[in-house]
Computed example of a mutant assay.
Amino acid sequence: MTLEELGYNDTFEKLRKENNLEDFEIGRIIAEHKERYIVKNEKGEFEAEITGNLRFTAKSREDFPVVGDWVTLLNCNADFVIIHSVFPRISMLSRQAVGKFGETQIIAANIDFALLVQAVDRDFNINRLERYLTICYSSKVSPIIVLTKTDLIEPQNLNEIVENIKRRIMNIPIFAISNETKDGYDSIKGVIEKGKTYCLLGSSGVGKSTLINNLSGKNIMKTKSISKSTNKGRHITSHRELSVIDSGGILIDNPGMREIGIIDSADGLENTFDKIFSFSKKCKFTDCTHRNEIGCAVIEAVEQGEIDRKSYENFLKIEREKDHFDLTVAERRKKEKSFGKMVKNFKNDMQKLSTKHNNLNKK
């Protein structure tokens, strides 16, 4: 397999030259298992880990490799290789780390498109779609909506779902498919381009792994049925994994996400809720929060039915989460700065004591 088939292109070659990485062999991260990686290039697949220097100089988890990253390699003629450095990323899908306030979790890197997968029989939720869209726009990734399990509902119900999406979400491709009957597959296969990378986002049990298997014509990913007792998806995909299918498309399966925490995403919000931002320019006050101000054009548009009320409420909720995340990050950085200053002062005091002690000994 060539590097181009793994998604390498002129953009990455330019980054390689600009960062003086031409003397290294390179590969792409196709899987991650607790900071142990699988890297693939034209020579094959290798187990890998990062250098001690890369680990030591990393300022946060974001500096570590993730699935989709291009990396430079050492010792590439052995079964086990060392990751020397990570290429600058052209895109990065991220969300709030679950249970870790103020921290970011990278979902995958160097993504061209995100397939936002929802099952129409039980999982469908436009509010969640808007959250996924916000993440995509913040990450400079083009979204595509994929509705699965269409064989489990009536055509009339499916049409209503599609129309509801279009009323709130504009200019995003929507594909309705059945993993069982393969209805809709001819259409979605048409958007999978050779050399482009697609990351699947969605809850457990919506059919992401089955979709990859059907598109590839092989059983690449493990699948399992929905739990009959809870009607919820079971976590089969336990880690992110990149696969190249016969058509040339590059697909990344992703564990089901129950929580979609929004991080610093001003651009993402503006693109997802563009109608709200368009009306906000007419507000009486430039710092209008669109919650209860007199002269708010957004509130007026909601009351007149020009902005969908549920979309407006979802916007306010996501914006509050974003503001809380920004505040948490600022507080954490303040604490880190204070701790760093304390450590520096401690080292200076110890050095002074040591110097004083040495001078006394000389006397």
Rank of each mutant, 00 (worst) to 15 (best):
T2R: 15
T2I: 11
T2M: 13
L3T: 01
L3F: 05
L3R: 02
E4P: 03
E4M: 06
E4D: 04
E5N: 13
E5V: 04
E5Q: 06
L6N: 00
G7A: 10
G7T: 02
Y8D: 03
Y8T: 10
Y8M: 14
Y8E: 07
N9K: 02
N9C: 09
D10A: 14
D10P: 07
D10K: 13
T11P: 10
T11K: 15
T11E: 14
T11Y: 15
K14A: 15
K14W: 13
K14R: 12
L15D: 05
R16V: 01
R16A: 08
R16Q: 07
K17E: 15
K17A: 08
K17Q: 08
N19S: 03
L21M: 06
L21T: 01
D23W: 11
D23G: 05
F24R: 02
F24D: 01
F24W: 10
E25S: 15
E25I: 13
E25L: 13
E25H: 14
I26V: 15
I26E: 11
G27R: 01
G27Y: 00
G27M: 05
R28E: 00
R28Y: 01
I29A: 01
I29N: 02
I29L: 03
I30L: 02
A31M: 06
A31V: 03
A31Y: 03
E32Q: 08
K34N: 12
K34L: 11
E35T: 10
E35G: 07
E35I: 11
R36Y: 12
Y37K: 09
Y37R: 08
I38A: 05
V39L: 07
V39R: 02
V39G: 03
K40Y: 04
N41W: 01
N41S: 04
N41L: 03
E42M: 04
E42D: 13
E42Q: 09
K43G: 11
E45P: 04
E45C: 12
E45G: 07
E45A: 08
F46E: 04
F46K: 05
A48S: 08
A48R: 08
E49C: 06
E49S: 12
I50A: 05
T51R: 14
T51E: 10
T51P: 06
G52P: 04
G52A: 11
G52E: 10
N53L: 15
N53F: 13
R55F: 15
R55P: 09
F56A: 05
F56V: 10
T57L: 14
T57R: 15
A58G: 14
A58T: 12
A58I: 13
S60L: 06
E62R: 06
E62H: 03
F64C: 07
F64I: 10
P65H: 04
P65S: 05
P65N: 00
P65G: 05
V67S: 03
V67R: 01
G68C: 06
G68I: 01
G68S: 04
D69E: 09
D69A: 01
D69I: 07
W70R: 02
W70Q: 04
T72I: 00
T72G: 04
N75Y: 12
C76I: 13
C76M: 14
C76G: 11
N77F: 09
N77K: 14
A78K: 15
A78Q: 15
D79Q: 09
D79Y: 10
D79H: 09
F80C: 02
F80L: 10
V81W: 09
V81Q: 07
I82L: 15
I83E: 05
I83C: 02
H84P: 00
S85H: 08
V86H: 03
V86P: 02
F87D: 05
